[in-house]
Simulated assay, not measured.
Amino acid sequence: MTAAIESPLPATPGPTSSDAGDITAAASSGWKLTLREFTKNKLAVTGVGILLFFVLFSFVGPLVYHSDQLNTNLLSTYQAPGGGYPLGTDSNGFDVLGRIMLGGQTSLEIGFIAALIATVIGTLWGAVAGLLGGMVDAVMMRVVDILLAIPFLLVVLIIAHRYGSNTWNLSLILGVFSWLVPARLIRGEVLTLRVRDFVSAARVMGGSKTHLIFRHLIPNAMGTVIVNITFQIADAILALAALSYLNFGVHYPNTDWGSQISDAQDALSNGYWWLVFPVGAALVLVVMAFNLIGDGLRDAVDVRLRKR
């Protein structure tokens, strides 16, 4: 009989269901810690409240407060607040309150869509550059540097003039030209993550670059992604307002807050304050809300990372 030869190395156990459960529990605990720290930030919670108010105001408000935003009424132009018009009427006889609701829909929709497009492109670009490194990273980031040197507003104005200004076109234009900053942020995050033990272990186990990016790097950089997207939305809303002020925004029958400010730029000198201050306040409060939420998320994510 031949004696059995024992291996000098102990068998390495593979991942078990309990290990997977521990990882899931740790991730869940981390996000619970983030939420708890976020709710302690009174300014961030205030920002959430302001944003929730304007989302309901813009999308639910028209279902409660009905106004005609399609047909002009030249007999009711420049009516002061009161007499059936809580915020008065504009130069076309449109109810200003209903106009602000309609403009809020467009501004928020374009802000969210543009930020989503910019975040997806920037996250993928930065993750690939950070993981591959070397010459690939150098070339990819030089492309980002070159594009950052091009005046953003000038390019957007030319493209908006060429292809038209509707909700989808403006969202796509703003999103495609806003991914550069997220790309740099995610690339920097990936550069720190790719030397971590869990990434090295995944490499040793034969994980492909695609697997590393989508399974390990992007999920672990999600805190940075979520914080950045709030600032991206605020930037997109402001960029849309700038375009609209220059008459490159959406056109009748649609409207946005920037277009309303543009249309009312001579109103103050004529005493029609209600055409400027309410919509201006809405724009400022929404942008401020996103910035407060972003600051709160950033602080909460930092606390979570410190306590891991």
Rank of each mutant, 00 (worst) to 15 (best):
T2R: 08
T2S: 11
P15A: 08
S17I: 11
S18Q: 13
D19W: 02
A26Y: 10
S29N: 03
L35H: 07
L35E: 15
R36C: 04
T39P: 02
K40Q: 13
L43V: 05
F54R: 00
L56K: 04
Y65T: 03
Y65G: 01
N73C: 06
T77Q: 09
T77N: 01
G83Q: 09
D90I: 05
L102Y: 04
G103Q: 07
V143Y: 00
V144P: 01
D145Q: 08
I150L: 00
I158R: 12
I159M: 01
Y163R: 00
S165A: 13
T167D: 06
L170T: 01
L180D: 00
V181I: 12
P182Q: 08
G188E: 00
V190E: 00
T192L: 05
L193F: 13
V195Y: 13
D197V: 13
I213P: 00
H216Y: 09
P219G: 01
M222P: 09
F231G: 02
I233S: 06
Y245H: 00
L246S: 14
G249C: 05
N254V: 12
D256C: 09
Q260S: 12
I261Y: 13
S262N: 07
A264P: 03
W273D: 14
W273I: 07
W273L: 06
L275I: 14
L283S: 14
A289Y: 08
F290K: 10
R298N: 07
R304Y: 12
R308Y: 15
R308V: 10
